[in-house]
Design a protein around this nucleic acid. Structure first.
Lengths: 121, 121
DNA sequence: AACAAGAATGAAAATGATTGTCATTTTCAG
DNA sequence: CTGAAAATGACAATCATTTTCATTCTTGTT
């Protein structure tokens, strides 16, 4: 990871775990770090490729980014406040492989998320 | 529901259950119905308000609309050619409800897709 | 039929997030 | 130091979606 990547990651960690690219950029400029919006977007793409951050979508379609661990996992996301819980896939992994094999698909991956309204909202 | 609402809904039902606004519009124009993109967007908003259709998000953030009460199912998508197979969720439904309940989430929904490369590719 | 009020329509402009371009700057190995 | 490669950021382009606004349909009333 390069310097701007580190600064983006550090900012992301300090703003409560998730934020949009624009919010991250605003926070960085506010805090005196000088960086362009383009670089923030590129840095985030790189961090995603390295599996250091995760991308999700707000209800309005805006992308939000959050730091995540390495292990493959899924998310339980609150539609109101954005609170996110990492959960295990469990049977999903098996289900994906079985269905894919059944239809002759190779190089299988999957995505699964659960949405709802959390107890605080 | 007004006339354009009915035509939008009918188109949505005929394209496999879900599609983006732009895709719905393209399909309608292709089929000779003449309608403006604006009206498609407005019609979809109205259908959402009436709880007749549901809005979800693609990975790229584009909104996709689905008829509610449509049998809920998932997709197996080829990363190369885009071929899509509709599959049953099976245990996924249970998994989503259980996990959500465990963390106190209400009004639960979920999305799950499997990606791979199909036998033709 | 004639009329008006209001809803529906759609072309075009506006918006806003994201991505592409490209000239400039930084980094770094030799 | 020096040149190649990577990183940067201002700016323009793209694309889905929303807003605006002038025009066209409905529909009820006389």
């Amino acid at each position: 990871m390069n310097k701007s990547g580190e600064r983006i990651l550090s900012t992301l960690e300090h703003v409560g775990g998730f934020a949009s690219a624009q919010e991250i950029h605003r926070a960085m400029v506010r805090d005196g770090k000088n960086i362009g919006l383009t670089t923030v977007y590129r840095g985030l793409q790189a961090l995603i490729k390295e599996n250091i951050v995760d991308i999700l979508r707000r209800d309005d379609g805006e992308a939000i980014y959050r730091v995540c661990g390495d292990a493959h996992h899924h998310h339980l996301v609150c539609k109101k406040c954005g609170r996110t819980v990492e959960i295990e896939g469990g049977e999903i992994e098996k289900w994906a492989l079985q269905e894919a094999a059944h239809y002759g698909f190779r190089e299988v991956g999957h995505s699964a998320e659960i949405f709802g309204i959390c107890s605080n909202c």
